[in-house]
């Protein structure tokens, strides 16, 4: 089982008493807000959780995995996530199998 937007909205409904529409909208807008910011070239820092950072990558050689043909990978901008100290410490002690 994975945590999804539906479950996040459920907790806003049960724990904070938002109505279902408000809860769903807020969860949607939360992720949209982060996406929009990254799209506009700004990093996002959520203290206690982690930072979403933009990186620019230059052109590099790649291969078509099917044909083996050499093709350049175009320069691009990608998002990386760096977990915060608090999240790292909480996750580190998880002893189960990889999900």
């Amino acid at each position: 089982m994975a945590l999804t937007k539906a479950e996040l909205a459920e907790s806003l409904y049960f724990e904070l008493g938002l109505n279902k529409r408000e809860a769903k909208d807020l969860v949607d807008q939360f992720f949209e807000g982060i996406r929009e910011c990254l799209e506009n070239g700004r990093d996002v820092k959520l203290s206690g959780f982690g930072n979403f950072t933009l990186r620019q990558k230059g052109e590099r050689p790649g291969r078509n995995p099917r044909t083996g043909e050499l093709i350049p990978i175009t320069p691009r901008r990608v998002v990386t996530f760096k977990p915060g100290q608090k999240l790292k410490l909480r996750v580190e002690s998880y002893g189960g199998d990889n999900p």
């Binding site: 089982m1 994975a2 945590l3 999804t4 479950e7 996040l8 907790s11 806003l12 724990e15 904070l16 938002l18 809860a23 807020l26 969860v27 939360f30 959520l46 206690g48 959780f49 608090k86 999240l87 909480r90 996750v91 002690s93 998880y94 189960g96 199998d97 990889n98 999900p99």
Partner: peptide
């Protein structure tokens, strides 16, 4: 609400659950 969302996401990862 924002704190609840982030808390729930952290809880999920701390118990080995994926987030999608």
């Amino acid at each position: 609400a924002v704190k609840t969302i982030l808390e729930q996401m952290s809880d999920a990862l701390a118990t080995g659950e994926r987030i999608e």
